[in-house]
Design a protein around this nucleic acid. Structure first.
Lengths: 292, 292
DNA sequence: GGAATTCTCTGACTAAAGTCAGATAATGTT
DNA sequence: AACATTATCTGACTTTAGTCAGAGAATTCC
């Protein structure tokens, strides 16, 4: 454990030395870092002043001044938005586009310069390790929180869950057939609903309801396709099991379709064992149970 | 290639976001980042004002003021050096040591917080990927340059090379037996000597001398134990081969002992084939050759 | 239609970070 | 001993980055 922490610290140190070089290459363009960062952001994800303020976490006064500076340099054009004339739309000029391209080239050069001294095998290894770090950083940045199944995010997740089942099942999927859609069963104190988020965006969910005094059932376990491979399914499952334990349940059960093979693999890996059908869900071909 | 660069850029972006958090945790201690960084540096690698100025790349006036600030906070004691009373020795006070420990704890906490949301397998994977990135960053930071075999660094490398052979050979190793130690054969235009450095420190070397019009011989190929696993042997070998090509040589050869199995593996992997003895070096059991 | 809210802008600040030109004292060089 | 060099310090300065308190216009809410 201590060794792991040391490794993380060493990693942070070395990598931010390199990242420092990147900042310097921005500075080298004769423009303060704050301006360069803003210009870069406008160039890549665009948007209006409010969005930029949120994304970069800037004070509105400060942002206003930065915009004025970039405008007077002829990098951007700021105009009141059509839809809401309080907000300002920001657009790159030709010169601004050229400048952003220069920054891009600098970033590319820096990336190349890291790779350049390595042979092909080492390059491939480094890039793979970077991808791994990135993936796991993303996994670590996911938050899971209990909330009402009626929140906008929770509803959105369940909608996507239903849409996906409808696509994957040969017969389609009608949630009412599987049992009436009743949010209240996922409400405390007996039930609970959890939503996973990455950078504020909902990317997964899961619900726990009480079947009887000692049994909970897990339903609506779903992970957004873009977030798969982060171990999030396992994490949601563990979270729901912990919540079941808190509610004094001695076991949890769940059902699943034969089509969802990756889900079955997850349940097996997490210690679930297949049991006889405990309900008559027409979409279910497998029933699982785990003692807590 | 383009994908690799994109991956490197994505990696830099994500990782420096995290590194930003680290800076913030420094700032959270009610001390400006510059002071905190200096204190941290004094605490870990110590040294006098000049060394710190070099390491952190600070202006001497700026450093002086930072030192004065830390001194007045009771974190450090600044005294004229015994050896040269122009330079200032810097020492942590008890309070300074305590403060550095606090920073250490904060860094540990940050590292833990990155790992915390992950399960054991993910933690292990992340740490392994970080170690890989670190290792390859180090490999990429190595420079190889041709220079006289008489420079201090070159001599130091050859000394360590000889000492190592002396340890690893059952019979010991006396460089004079293997052929007279004659630096001049590694001098241009016929020969060349290269030294590898990491962060200014010599960590490897290799020499090329001319045997006849079309043949070069590679000798004194050595990589410091601390730098092994970075692919440096291969890189030095390639570098020397390129220099041989520049000199119009059609092939290079080399000899090695049976004890140095990892060296033999390297030669095989780099396209060298074993040939009949071309000299009577008593320490050699294998002779290799490669067409260029 | 009036009040509350939202978005942006301006003026007036501050702290941090760093630069530059000497001044001073110690050390090297010849 | 004279001169050059080095290490540090001080004063005076600038730039960058950011904060805060309103003001004004547009929009939303009731």
């Amino acid at each position: 454990m201590l060794n792991q922490i040391d490794q993380v610290r060493r990693f942070n140190r070395i990598v931010s030395q390199r990242a420092g070089t990147l900042d310097q290459s921005y500075l080298g363009q004769g423009r303060p870092l704050g301006e360069a960062r803003l210009l870069f952001e406008v160039g890549h994800d665009g948007g209006n002043a409010r969005e930029l303020r949120d994304r970069l976490g800037l004070d509105s006064g400060y942002l206003s001044r930065l915009l004025r500076a970039l405008e007077s340099q002829g990098m951007i054009v700021v105009t009141p938005s059509q839809a809401d004339r309080r907000v300002r739309d920001i657009r790159l000029t030709q010169a601004g586009t050229a400048q952003v391209e220069t920054y891009d080239r600098l970033s590319d050069d820096l990336a190349s310069s890291i790779l350049a001294p390595l042979d092909e095998r080492q390059k491939a290894k480094l890039v793979e390790a970077m991808a791994q770090v990135e993936r796991l950083y993303r996994a670590a940045a996911v938050t899971v929180s209990a909330e009402s199944p009626a929140t906008a995010d929770a509803r959105a997740c369940v909608d996507l869950y239903i849409r996906e089942l409808n696509q994957r099942f040969d017969t389609g999927y009608d949630p009412d057939t599987a049992g009436p859609l009743d949010d209240s069963e996922f409400l405390p104190p007996d039930g609970v609903f959890v939503v996973a988020r990455l950078d504020g965006k909902a990317i997964g969910c899961g619900g726990l309801k009480r079947l009887d005094f000692q049994t909970g059932e897990i339903k609506r376990l779903w992970v957004s396709p873009e977030a798969r491979g982060l171990g999030l399914g396992r994490r949601l499952l563990n979270e729901l099991e912990a919540l079941a334990r808190q509610r004094g349940m001695a076991k949890v059960c769940l059902d699943t379709s034969g089509t969802l093979t990756e889900a079955q693999a997850l349940y097996h890996a997490q210690g679930y064992v297949e049991v006889a059908p405990y309900n008559d869900n027409p979409y279910a071909q497998h029933w699982f149970e785990k003692r807590l």
